[in-house]
Amino acid sequence: MNPVNYLYLASLLFTIGAAGVLIRRNAIVVFMCVELMLNACNLALVAFSRMHGNLDGQIIAFFTMVVAAAEVVVGLAIIVSLFRSRHSASVDDASLMKL
């Protein structure tokens, strides 16, 4: 098997994640889909690392994880405070940007 299949898998997961972001209304699920997309990228980075024979890809994936962790913390805090004020976690309820 050619390790390039990992890349195909990564793109598939990424696309599924993106579709989830667009389709789901529950902010928590949307968030999970974002995480899925990040993980797909990480998989691609790890595969690239193997392809090029150095560890830089893994480092980037590592940083991605750190950033994702920070993002999750803040994002979930936002969701919690949103739920507190609106009793709903639907992203469509926060649609005050229109006229």
Binding site: N2, P3, V4, R50, M51, G53
Partner: peptide, 11 residues
Amino acid sequence: LDTFEGLGTAN
């Protein structure tokens, strides 16, 4: 993307 060097040396 046919050639994969592998991480033998790096690891």
